[in-house]
Design a protein around this nucleic acid. Structure first.
Lengths: 190, 190
DNA sequence: GTCTATAGACTGATAGAC
DNA sequence: GTCTATCAGTCTATAGAC
């Protein structure tokens, strides 16, 4: 059992709440109860809730970027990259209905300041750029049949698909809608 | 100028807030300021905020079902039905970054009681059934090329696509992501 | 139906002791 | 770094007059 600094504990707990309930639906009091620390002490680590939001999305985006890099480093086909990408979103969902933090934050956009929104947009931009590179690769290795659209359009389509599928699955309290939604794409990849 | 009953005014205003800010991000005080009526008076029309949520989603689902019926009644090809469906979601987005009420409610799932969630799930079920029928029709009229997946899977895929694309577009404060995301599908339909 | 007034709980945030 | 104590503001909701 690793002893974890309070700040990391707070981030982990806040991320869990944000991904299962939404950012507006948990308070410092909730974190206080969960971690076993007084509300006032949390303000020492994150002076305002806006600071907490920024720290959350920054850490999440960095971690997600690492995941994508790890997939790219395998140097597989475009189809394999895309399958791994679909797996990332599925994995999050299976671990207790957790939606991507960015799906959660996008839904509550108006609750955040410009600094947090900048990180959110960067996450989307990075994901879209990564996906577009996958579709560029697909144009070369022909591992995804039936490609007729622009890589940029395909990237937007995939990102929308997985984020929408997560949202619907969570509403239904079941992984099934996600599995159905990615099925047509998976057929093309196998 | 039509004189509108207070109850309808409240529903319209609440729907606008829910679709632009989120259900948890507006209060009876906000409605009070906007409509020009006291907070306490709103409780006469909707005793609790949970009642307001139920009324909102019920009205929205009924209106949306009418929209879908209107599309079906045109008796066009499956491709034409699908194009009209994509147009419905685009239209909502263009009218001031309004996401589908059900995208908004799905994101804040834990804020709602079972009655409201039942309406939310019914909306998804009805949409999926309508879309599956469109893909059944496509199997007959061959208006959507390259169909290899199950109509049920295709339906989940389309619903996820449009709801995810709305979410990303709103986060980006631009219609562009939605337009990009539906482009690969539109190419198949033209 | 709408009003004034208010209850009671919760929110994020601060001051100051240890 | 964490604590106790407290703030001012907000929230949903209710009581009772008109």
């Amino acid at each position: 059992m690793v002893v974890m600094p309070t700040k990391d504990q707070l981030l982990d707990c806040a991320e869990h709440f944000a991904r299962t309930r939404g950012f507006d639906a948990f308070s410092y009091a909730d974190l206080s109860k969960e971690i076993g620390i007084q509300k006032a002490s949390i303000h020492y680590h994150f002076a305002t809730k806006a600071d907490l939001a920024t720290a959350l999305i920054e850490r999440y985006a960095a971690r997600f970027a690492d995941d994508l890099t790890r997939i790219s480093d395998r140097r597989g086909t475009a189809a394999e990259d895309l399958k791994a990408y679909l797996g990332l979103y599925k994995e999050a969902l299976s671990q207790g209905s957790r939606i991507c933090l960015c799906v959660s934050f996008s839904a509550a956009r108006d609750s955040f300041d410009d600094k947090t929104l900048a990180h959110l947009n960067r996450f989307h931009r990075d994901s879209l750029a990564w996906l577009a590179r996958v579709f560029d690769k697909a144009g070369a290795d022909a591992s995804i049949p039936g490609l007729i659209a622009d890589p940029k359009d395909e990237a937007h389509s995939i990102l929308s698909l997985v984020e929408g599928a997560q949202l619907i699955s969570r509403a239904a309290r079941s992984d099934a809608p996600y599995d159905h939604a990615v099925q047509p794409l998976l057929r093309r990849l196998s």
